[in-house]
Simulated assay, not measured.
Amino acid sequence: MGLGAALLIAALLLSTYTKGKIAKIPLNIDATLVSDGTATAFDPASLLGERFVVNEDVPVVQQQQLSVESPANADVVTLQVGTSLRRTDQQQDNGLLLAMVDTVTVNRQTAEAVSSETNPGGSVQKPRAIEDETPPTSIALPHEGLSYRFPFDTEKKTYQLFDPIAQRPFDVNYSGEEDVNGLTTLRFTQNVGFDNDGELVEPVKFASLYDDDANSQVTARASLWGLEGDPEEEITMTRYYAAQRTFWVDQVSGTIVKETDRAYHYYARDALKPEMTYVDYTVTSDEETIEAQVAAAQDERDRVALWGRILPITFTALGLVLLVGGALLGTFSLRAESMLADPGLDDTGDRFYGKRGEEGEPVPGAEAMTEKLPAQRPTDLPPDRPV
């Protein structure tokens, strides 16, 4: 009975306290996520030409490298995510279109960004050349909402997801369930500057990470922009950004197992009238990335299920069996002990091996009381013979 009670208490603790300690973002994340697709992209070689050139339908690959940095402890984890977008039809610097290293500290259960006096909650690295060997420097960028993960036990509702390019969070809305490689996922969509039909409604002014805003505003001759009028007139255009994203999320662990990104970077004098595309691309997680993320989600599901469901159910079943068995065994043992000590204490008239008594049921012949029968005189002897 004591062991049964202990198992029931253990089951209760596992299903409440222990599950809360287990359902957390791992501290050993080290993943490379690859997405591929096509784009309309600016040709860097045209900077030296007579007019800027934009190529259509070029192959591109987006790569994200996720790793864990300090601080990382029982409550929070810091994710460092290096993201790059490359044209695969060009080599080295000519193929690099976008690059960013984003760092954010999140709560390990809710995946919400957290900050403190010693930790601003996030930062981004200043851009530098590929051959630059000086240590990177970072700019503090406090994050809000979710970043790169969804919370454990993700709900079918609207969340806030931070966009490091726009440098602020945007709504990410639940839009249904979908199977991804055998895993039932929740699908979420996010619009940054686009409406649901993909039309520009409120594009974001690109936030440059250079001290002189070198890539957020560009001044060039009208002939380079391809504009009519005086070819030598200096025209300044501002860079704008908009994006649409779809996430397929494992509901239990909050792992993003698949993602589709459409992002539009362009230059214009009017935010809603693009004049020169820098890059307009759509990429989707490749099959290898999806398989790896589904496997990671399954591992976290199994870990949570073991401590949050399988062991509590097992301990509860064993605890109940032991309690009932212990109670029955205790009752039988106490009764047997009282019978052996004083049979008269059994007020039911029973005995240890069954009912016995003078007025009870007939007892077996071997134990029946014997009776002496009177002998009869013989009647067939001769009269003159003495008996």
Rank of each mutant, 00 (worst) to 15 (best):
K258G: 00
N196R: 09
P312N: 07
V124S: 11
S175D: 13
T185A: 10
A295D: 10
S123T: 08
E202F: 06
N55H: 06
S216L: 06
D347C: 01
L3C: 12
Y240F: 15
L224E: 03
F247M: 02
G121M: 07
P383Y: 10
H265I: 02
P364G: 11
Y174H: 02
A368M: 11
D261Y: 03
S67Y: 03
L85K: 08
S285G: 02
F352R: 12
N181A: 15
R385G: 01
D163T: 02
L3K: 05
E69Y: 07
Y353C: 04
G330D: 02
L14F: 13
Q160E: 05
V201F: 06
P142L: 07
V192Y: 13
G2P: 00
G330R: 12
D261T: 10
S116T: 11
L96E: 13
F152D: 02
P312A: 07
V180T: 09
V257Y: 04
E275V: 05
F206T: 08
Q244S: 03
G95W: 08
E233K: 11
P362E: 12
T236K: 12
D197E: 15
S175H: 03
A327I: 13
D195M: 13
A74F: 06
A263R: 14
T118E: 11
N28H: 11
T18V: 15
V101K: 11
G49N: 09
R303A: 14
I165V: 14
P231Q: 05
A336I: 09
Q63L: 05
L209Q: 15
A74S: 14
R385M: 10
E300R: 13
Q160D: 11
Q62C: 00
V304D: 10
K355R: 14
P274E: 09
A72G: 05
V283P: 03
E287R: 09
E117V: 07
S253V: 03
V304E: 08
L209H: 14
G4N: 09
V172H: 02
Q90P: 01
T83Q: 10
T370S: 14
R377I: 03
Q109T: 14
P383W: 07
V218Y: 15
L12W: 14
P231W: 13
K273C: 05
R128Y: 04
V81A: 03
T78Q: 06
G4I: 09
A72I: 02
T83I: 08
F52S: 05
Q298A: 01
A243F: 00
P274D: 09
H143W: 00
A317M: 12
D350W: 04
L322F: 07
D211V: 10
Q65V: 12
D197G: 15
A214I: 12
L186K: 05
M339T: 14
Y281A: 00
M100H: 04
Q190L: 07
A74T: 00
T260Q: 15
D213E: 14
Q160F: 04
R351Y: 13
Q64M: 08
P26T: 11
G344Q: 07
D270V: 13
Y278Q: 14
E178C: 06
Q251G: 00
W248P: 01
S208Y: 11
V101H: 01
